[in-house]
Design a protein around this nucleic acid. Sequence first.
RNA 1: GGCUGGGUAGCAAAGCGGUUAUGCAGGGGCCUGCAAAGCCUUAUAGACCGGUUCGACUCCGGUCCCAGCCUCCA
Length: 462
Amino acid sequence: MLKIYNTLTNQKEDFRPIDPNNIGIYVCGMTVYDFCHMGHARVLVMFDVITRHMRRNYPNVQYIRNITDIDDKIISRAIENNEDIYSLTNRFIDAMHEDEKALGVLSPDIEPRATDSIDHMIDMIELLSKKGLAYEGKNGDVFYSVRKFRNYGKLSGKNLDDLVAGARVDIESNKQDPLDFVLWKKAKPSEPKWSSPWGEGRPGWHIECSAMSTHFISNHFDIHGGGMDLTFPHHENEIAQSEGANNCKFVNTWMHVGFVNINDEKMSKSLKNFFTIRGVLDKYDGETLRYFLISSHYRSPLNFSDTNIESAKSALKRLYTATKGFSSSKKIDVKVGMTFDYEDRFDAALNDDFNTPIALSILFEIAKQVNIERSKDSEHAASLAQLLKKLGNYLGILEYDAELYLQQGSELSEAEVSIKINQREEARASKNFAMSDQIRDELLTLGIILEDSIDGTSWRRK
RNA sequence: GGCUGGGUAGCAAAGCGGUUAUGCAGGGGCCUGCAAAGCCUUAUAGACCGGUUCGACUCCGGUCCCAGCCUCCA
């Protein structure tokens, strides 16, 4: 039984699908005015792990992740660059796709752009107006009347009076209540605009997710996720909009991914302490990064540092090393009873609120067993290695041939290394160990490590 | 101030009321011509104070500290 921590109830709950044959997942994606950073990477990778696991357990999982391609930041960045918003957003959408590919993230089933769903948003705002939940302010903007929605605050555990007392609410004379939020913004001259019953303008941020999730999935669906900072106000407002408009429960399970921190502080654009995915990929391969991101539980904070990624790199290398030599496509039957309950325990870990650290620890148990069996029972070792690769793939790691992975980024070609290895073999055969060690040291300075075994000498990158 | 989380060994990170988490790094050993990898072995935990219990890192209460949200943010 899959258990998921639900932000709505602040506890782990049994996941009971609305329709087991049709699971709906909606995740708030990127606002595309800049390159994705490590925080985005964590959300991308975690929901990739989550949907991969869901797909193994349910026949049809519909995964939707939107793209916010219209908002204030996009507009101001486009003006700054003196370019059309679409040329800006298209560029960063392409960049995002490159990044997620490098991280081994599978594409969502649908990736709707806000600007393609303006009609659905207008429909929803009209519905809210009809129900008396929305009103037009003095400046022509349309607002949601938060106090008219009974359950406002249920997701984030806030109550309206506390929010007012917090005094961090802006004084906005156009609103009836300072907590009300914008559904539709009147266009200023030279801003991108769409026509609507309230004149030309553009949608507020929150309405797009309510409109797109209900349109592409249903008024009521299973899982809605995003980064933790979206809990309030974004997701709270989505609930107000969707439930206010449709008179039914919006989402059963709300999932929120913890932050990536720098020196124990949230990584964010406003703090200017962020690292872009592509910046990190200059130094580390995508799978190392992915391993790093899944090495802690998705709700815990994750501290980003070179030391921590280096340690992820070493750990992943250990798993690859264990599968080395078994990567041939030769089909081996996994012997019943010889793999113990590794796979069951692996599944149980993921079923327990997607506990990737435990799932990974089981991969290490298998790796150790492969190493032990290697010299004793090679067939058993091979079947374990196959299992290791299979379970790794479920998490989106161990996707490459071990040999190739361990040799990637080498300055010398395969052939060049082979020549050196052969020279060294000759030296060793004639017991000229000074010479053989010299060759090995020479390669080491080029970042290449040689490993002698009964099967001969193999090499890998340091 | 209100609301969430959290404080675990050198570092990272989990589960668990009593039995080895796991990885990286360290010590000793085996293997090796020497290495590397691997295997065996080993040390180092549970912020603090009380309580419940035969027994608590794990449950309850309190204290201290940290992070996040309450404003755009994944």
